[in-house]
Write a protein that binds this DNA or RNA. Structure first.
Lengths: 357, 357
DNA sequence: TTGTAGGCGTTATCAC
DNA sequence: GTGATAACGCCTACAA
């Protein structure tokens, strides 16, 4: 029962070899004779030594095997978003081969409690991935850059020389709109994500539209505007079925101006819009067509299969991880722009005959 | 443009003070005269020094400010579970004051790739939290204990001397069953979570019931059995609305033996069961009562409000964090058993009159 | 194949 | 209030 944990020096002494030899046994960097290896391992076992102290190793090696993932929201909120979840999965996959793990970091913390920041400044990070760099994360970015840590930004406006992982949001959303136009729809509405943080559900005025700080929202809306410049836009407070439902109720409220198609900026919103349509006695897609965005599996939406833009969420994560890995190797990492794939489900159809209304 | 990052020694030299003084300026552990502080800070700014290197600090201090969270599943899967998500939130909250962050760790890794494990053995952890210790995590536990790292187990069978955070699953589920009995229900079915990993959706035979390795499933089922020893049990493959829907279809398949109430082991399953009931033309709660478990907000379930057992998910996370914090301070941490709160919504009602069927 | 020596960047201790 | 000193535990040239 020793009072202090054994170190590699202890093991070496116990095994009757030098510390460097013992070290080599664990790192495997240099060949070691079988006999000595055995002795070292035995000594380690005897002393309850379980391997090099990661803290010491990371100081010596200059890297910790930890990649920080910075969210701007509460973690619980972030993981409510299936796309982010998938991305994390891809990211975890991609950094695993380099022997790295993911450290969850919240952005706000740095503000709230001054002294006890678990954060970007004090964590032993090799690299950082910022999720959704919408202004809020700006200073996180500065912090990280000041520390000289490689950064990759996913879905956000980074700045000069910082690799970004992005999506062709505008082009993709334009495809959905074009699809609807091809089907003959002329009265179209769109349900968007929040235009800025803290937004409370409501119609977007043109003033609002000029002041959209969240990039995804802006770009996807622009895609709709490319095809339907005057489509009314209702902005939800977040990507949830219930938000889509509430939005849908507004959108379908007036039978006279009721749209024949709704472009939603996320699958969850689309699911809610569909519910609202059903509620209003409208059939999908006979009376109303609805498109989503993301291409996730919406639990409980069956039998509908959304017409949507499938984004490579997991791939985005993997790409972010790959970029990080490259930068860590000292290679330059390029920004990547992913393309969404249009998927036609059973929630869109020809515009209903106007006369038959 | 120096080739190497500045160290605190560089800053000290530049400021004309000793390294220890410079260190103190950053740590704030000892009073420093305003003049020297200013000089040191200025020097730091001039050299682009952003604070002590966390790696070195953690070696010196003997702690890294990192708490590992070990899941047995793929991360993407884990975060699909709203309860786990909330727990993570609570955990993040609880460790933040100690200036710690959460490192995501997957259990399987240690097996899959031998060399490149980002894992328990190589990560600079101060402590670890194991989520759902259902046998699979057993060796993770051993690894961590061997390293002498404090461990807390959430929802799982740990072993001697390891603090656990658990729920009164059986008692809580019994409350739901009792509630139904009080309402006069006699033909009751239950829809359970997976009895073991890799389970494919299906009815539970009594053989199966004797061989349930996942504790939550076993305990909640036992709670139902306390009241309805013979209720048929259908086990889903996971906690999803679609699984509940599939289960519900089976449960309501035969009009003759159709239950008047269904006890689901999760809110998501309950939501699916409700869908299945609607599909079968049954009204909730007039024809069929349904109870859930968890007390989460099921997105898109409105206007229903589940009768369910509300578990303090976030609190569980906080408690785990608190336990970790205590152990890190060298204090003993006790296991905690949380209690669910019965919440009566509008999905349960009196048993339908048998004659009226 | 094994051993020696030096330092990675900090910070706690103790003297001044 | 400030400075010298000594670890923290490991890894890796380099020499033997």
């Amino acid at each position: 029962m020793s009072t202090r944990r054994a170190t590699i020096a202890d093991v070496a002494r116990e095994a009757g070899v030098s510390p460097s030899t013992a070290s080599v046994v664990f790192s495997g960097k240099t060949p070691v004779s079988d006999a000595t290896r055995k002795r070292v391992l035995a000594a380690a076992a005897a002393l309850g030594y379980t391997g090099p102290d990661p803290r010491a190793a990371s100081l010596r090696l200059g890297r910790s095997g930890i990649v920080g993932v910075v969210f701007e929201e509460h973690l619980g909120t972030a993981f409510l978003d299936p796309v982010k979840t998938l991305m994390m999965d891809g990211l975890a996959d991609a950094v695993a081969p380099m022997g790295a793990g993911l450290l969850l970091l919240r952005d706000r913390d740095s503000w709230s409690r001054e002294g006890a920041a678990p954060s970007l400044t004090t964590a032993p990070l090799d690299a950082a991935v910022l999720i959704g760099c919408s202004g809020l994360l700006r200073e996180s970015l500065d912090t990280v850059r000041a520390r000289g840590i490689p950064v990759v930004v996913v879905e956000g406006d980074a700045g000069e020389g910082i690799p970004r992982i992005e999506l062709d949001n505008r082009e993709a959303q334009r495809q959905a709109a074009s699809h609807l136009r091809m089907l003959g729809h002329t009265r179209v509405a769109t349900v968007t994500l929040a235009p800025r943080s803290g937004w409370a559900r409501g119609w977007l005025t043109s003033d609002d539209e000029g002041d959209i700080t969240i990039e995804v929202t802006r770009d996807r809306l622009a895609g709709v505007r490319d095809v339907y410049p005057d489509a009314p836009a209702f902005a939800a407070a977040g990507s949830f079925i219930d938000e889509g439902l509430a939005a849908g109720r507004q959108v379908f409220a007036d039978a006279a101006t009721r749209p024949t198609a709704v472009v939603a900026q996320s699958d969850l919103l689309a699911a809610g819009v569909i519910r609202a349509a059903e509620e209003a006695g409208l059939r999908i897609p006979e009376d109303v067509s609805v498109t989503g965005f993301d291409g996730i599996v919406v639990d409980g939406l069956a039998p509908y299969e959304l017409t949507t833009l499938v984004q490579p969420a997991t791939e985005k994560g993997r790409a972010a991880g790959a970029a990080v890995a490259a930068m860590l190797r000292g290679e330059p990492a390029a920004s990547i722009r992913f393309t969404c794939e249009f998927h036609e489900g059973n929630t869109t159809g020809p515009a209903p005959d106007e006369l038959g209304r």
